[in-house]
């Protein structure tokens, strides 16, 4: 753990290198060892303070980050949209500046607006960790997905990974596309065309509209949630028809090799993008992803907060 990430923020996987991803994963595996100990706490970030600013609902990401921070002995505070002065009309920037003035080392931010963490990062010397910005990126989710894949296959390079569902609105999909391609995997996308626009091929992924072709020869199937809250228009006729043509079912998985991994970032809409019976599929690693999430977030917090930075990244 001598090598540093030398960066202030983790805003996305588009702008980070393969080496940085490898370093973060390597550290995450070490952190996972810590989590297996009877005493799951190390003093690495003692005296550091992390602020969680979640402006969208979250169960997994938020508790995972909070647990990661506590495992590293950091102090944590929370600012949420429902309990803060945002309800009184305070802007997100003012909220950040005010909390920052109390002495914060890192902010973990989730917001419905793409680019909000990037905007805030220009106004603080604290580290900004993107915990999901609109339809843009969710880097720690993709890191934990890659960790899970690496754990199972011992590698990422050369694997065929299918991302199925609402790619259009998915920050998880975008971060995974960037990350997996950098690590040498082949990325396939599958779903109804309005939710999986052809433009994504220009990012280096292959787009499929036929389920059988999409699944042929895959090593990993990653389901994505149909984001009902972002579907302002009609992107497909009905949930019924979606299930008929686009949901991943146990039958689909059965046809594939025994080693195929089934993943989902959660929360799952059971009976929509995935059949509930899929939980019975042998290689379903949905809960292992959650476990790895804590380790990955410990790795990210450790590198950003205790690591050195290149000076030019500091503001002022």
């Amino acid at each position: 753990m001598q090598k540093g990430l030398r960066r202030k923020d983790l805003l996305g996987l588009k702008d980070i290198t393969k080496e940085e991803i490898e370093l973060l994963l390597e550290t995450a595996f070490s952190m996972k060892e810590v989590l297996k100990r009877p005493i799951k706490k190390i003093p690495t970030l003692r005296g550091k303070t992390i602020c969680f600013m979640f402006f969208e609902p979250s169960t997994r990401t938020r508790s995972s980050f909070e647990l990661a921070a506590k495992r590293l002995s950091a102090d944590t505070i929370n600012v949420s949209s429902s309990q803060s002065a945002l309800l009184k009309g305070e802007t997100v920037l003012d909220t950040l500046l005010n909390v920052d003035a109390m002495g914060i080392d890192a902010f973990v931010i989730r917001h419905a607006s793409s680019g909000l963490p990037h905007f805030l990062s220009r106004h603080t010397n604290a580290s900004i960790i993107n915990a999901g910005d609109g339809m843009h990126e969710h880097p720690t989710q993709a890191l934990l997905d890659m960790m899970t894949i690496k754990e199972k296959f011992g590698k990422i390079e050369g694997l065929n990974v299918l991302i199925a569902g609402d790619v259009r609105h998915s920050r998880v999909a975008r971060s995974n596309i960037y990350g997996l391609l950098k690590m040498g995997a082949h990325v396939r996308l599958f779903g109804p065309p309005p939710l999986v626009p052809r433009e994504f091929e220009k990012l280096g992924a292959r787009v499929f509209y036929d389920k059988n072709k999409a699944l042929d020869g895959v090593d990993v199937v990653m389901g994505l949630r149909i984001q009902k809250e972002r579907l302002k228009e009609s992107f497909f006729p009905s949930i019924r028809e979606y299930r008929k043509f686009f949901a991943i079912t146990p039958d689909d998985i059965e046809k594939l090799s025994d080693n195929v991994l089934l993943m989902h970032p959660g929360p799952v809409n059971w009976g929509v993008e995935m059949d509930y019976d899929i939980m019975k599929v042998k290689n379903n690693v949905i809960l292992e992803q959650v476990t790895n999430g804590v380790a990955v977030r410990m790795s990210v917090l450790y590198h950003l907060i205790s690591g050195e930075r290149d000076n030019e990244e500091d503001i002022n």
Partner: peptide, 17 residues
């Protein structure tokens, strides 16, 4: 649409409608 950026591979990439 209720977009905010010119629709292109870049708008998709940046997650901007």
């Amino acid at each position: 649409s209720h977009g905010i950026a010119h629709e292109s591979v870049l708008s998709y990439e940046m997650g901007l409608e």
